[in-house]
Write a protein that binds this DNA or RNA. Structure first.
Length: 270
DNA sequence: ACACGATCCTGACTGC
DNA sequence: TGCAGTCAGGATCGTG
């Protein structure tokens, strides 16, 4: 589910819990990407949530003493603000009860996500591997050009490498490449400077539009307040195999790159 | 060093 | 209706 626009949408929908104190930590020991135990989260108990930030697809809740709670949503994770009276559902792995009578719930059926207490919210170790944030960090076309030299893999797989830029996943990599007019299967090292400039522009505008739309709700994405996103109605190629290209009318093609479905227009993307 | 496939897990959907 | 197979928004590990 959540790529950068969805994580940013979740983050923005969490303003209602800012300032709240965590009064109870409930959860089962469950195998996520790492094992999750409530014991690990005990230091967050009694702490006040003072804000949130995002880096790539990671969300960080900042606590008053400088610590934080780090979340990654994998394929199916979400954070939900719910009334404490509401019953717990299957796959609710972590419930943080807040003093205002609400709970912050981490829900993740496929369990590819991550929840971790970090003593210093300034620089969790996971961030060291990440490239610049695809949306809000200042990288430029020249950076993309330099990073792509000597990389033989498909440009679409390269864009999804979080060490290059952080935040693009399968949907937005396809969508950005369509807007840039670049074929997803081309080797990254074959990109020209001007193509990197188009790609840079395409990434920024695609993400900006998606964030404005509240992300993409394909089957089940909702923000923390339970609202869906609308960007799925603006997909130009993703999940549009055999439908006409919105620009030239050619049928959109699907192919598998690095194990992931990839969509493109054979005419508009060269 | 690099690129790829397999893997973790559940749920929704398709076709027999 | 039931069952097997396929596919899904991600990241990591081992391998060749």
């Amino acid at each position: 589910m959540p790529e950068l626009p969805e994580v940013e949408t979740i983050r923005r929908s969490l303003v209602s819990v800012e300032g709240a104190r965590i009064t109870r930590v409930q959860g089962r020991c469950v195998q996520l990407r790492q094992p999750l135990t409530t014991e690990d989260l005990r230091p967050a108990l009694g702490q006040r949530i003072v804000g949130s930030s995002r880096r790539g697809k990671y969300l960080l809740l900042h606590l008053l003493d400088g610590a934080g709670l780090l979340f990654h949503f994998g394929m199916s994770g979400t954070l939900l603000v719910r009334a404490q009276a509401e019953p717990r559902r299957e796959h609710d792995h972590l419930v943080l009860e807040l003093e205002q009578g609400t709970s912050l719930v981490f829900h993740d059926p496929r369990r590819f996500g991550l929840v971790r207490f970090v003593a210093n919210a300034e620089e969790p170790s996971e961030f060291a591997q990440l490239g610049p944030d695809a949306w809000c960090d200042p990288y430029d076309a020249e950076y993309l050009f330099a990073q792509s030299r000597h990389r033989r893999l498909a440009v679409k797989a390269w864009l999804m490498d979080q060490r290059v830029i952080a935040g693009l996943g399968n949907i937005y990599a396809s969508e950005a490449l369509f807007r840039a007019g670049i074929r997803p299967g081309r080797q990254a090292r074959r990109l020209s400077r001007s193509e990197c400039a188009r790609l840079h522009w395409a990434i920024r505008t695609t993400l900006a539009e998606a964030i404005t739309a509240g992300g993409s709700s394909i089957s089940d994405f909702l923000d923390a307040q339970g609202r869906p996103g609308y960007f799925q109605h603006r997909f130009q190629v993703y999940e549009r195999e055999r439908q006409p290209c919105l620009h030239c009318g050619s049928p959109i093609r699907r192919r598998v790159l690095a194990g992931r479905s990839t969509y493109y227009c054979p005419r508009c993307q060269q």
